[in-house]
Design a binder for these strands. Sequence first.
DNA 1: ATAAAAATCACCCTAAAGTATGAATCGATC
DNA 2: GATCGATTCATACTTTAGGGTGATTTTTAT
Lengths: 147, 147
Amino acid sequence: MVIVYGSSLALLLSLLQIMELRFIIYDHAFEVYAGLLALLFTGIGIWLSVKLTAPRVERIVVEKKVFTDRSAPFLADEEALAKLGISLRELAVLELMAQGLSNREIAASLFVSLNTVKTHAARLFEKLDVQRRTQAVERGKARGLIR
Amino acid sequence: MVIVYGSSLALLLSLLQIMELRFIIYDHAFEVYAGLLALLFTGIGIWLSVKLTAPRVERIVVEKKVFTDRSAPFLADEEALAKLGISLRELAVLELMAQGLSNREIAASLFVSLNTVKTHAARLFEKLDVQRRTQAVERGKARGLIR
DNA sequence: ATAAAAATCACCCTAAAGTATGAATCGATC
DNA sequence: GATCGATTCATACTTTAGGGTGATTTTTAT
């Protein structure tokens, strides 16, 4: 690179020598030379900078929060479901619990008796290792069982 | 920028004039001037390049699935809070409800009696227009009162 | 200073939730 | 055909939640 720099400087100087022979020398010859030099080497500087410096890349990492899409079809985490041994009915009960339904309403919604909902709930709580429906909902969401 | 450029050129020229008066003029005076000029304006060119070129911005969007952001500090929606007329204590009860605590546990957590928790809960339900704690939690999240 | 809102607690009662145990039915699997 | 898991339901009991009412004490705002 030093070579390029040096030789371009030499080239310029000889160019100026030739010019000096060819054109009339007037009062402001020096200023003209200096201006030309300045322009040329400013250009060279820019060129050097652009060519030699690593491309400046400003990396902006934007965290985009995607809270579980409510419109898209939700698929329960099958793995977690299997691992915990939670049945489809128990999951259904959990889903309705998460929607704020009472056991009676869940029973009506699933066309089963209140007692049935209670047994499902009890087994669900056991499998999720919780004591209350609010905890079950919380854990169910954390495990990807419900949205 | 043109002003800076022009004035620095003028400055250099006058500097050289002064130098010319002060020091002896030898054979390679011109080459020295030219070299100095070249160096200076190469530097200016580089500086210009670095300063003026816009950095290439690489925007990386990382989609982060967040069901509830537990790490970031959460601020309850003050507007919604005020609009519904929910007090700080009621909000506290709601938060603990959302964590699955029973009224008794909430009472212990807030150092108040069970009855107090019940009154807070009752008023909260009234203001949120719900009948059950599970619904309150759901609605509270939807309104941005809790996370 | 006083009125309003917030926070506290109590008592009573009903409804809902949760626990425990037992049992019948059905489908799949061995 | 026996076994197992899932689903269904029942009865009995305890605990928790929720509704209604009233009251006292702070705190806050006018």
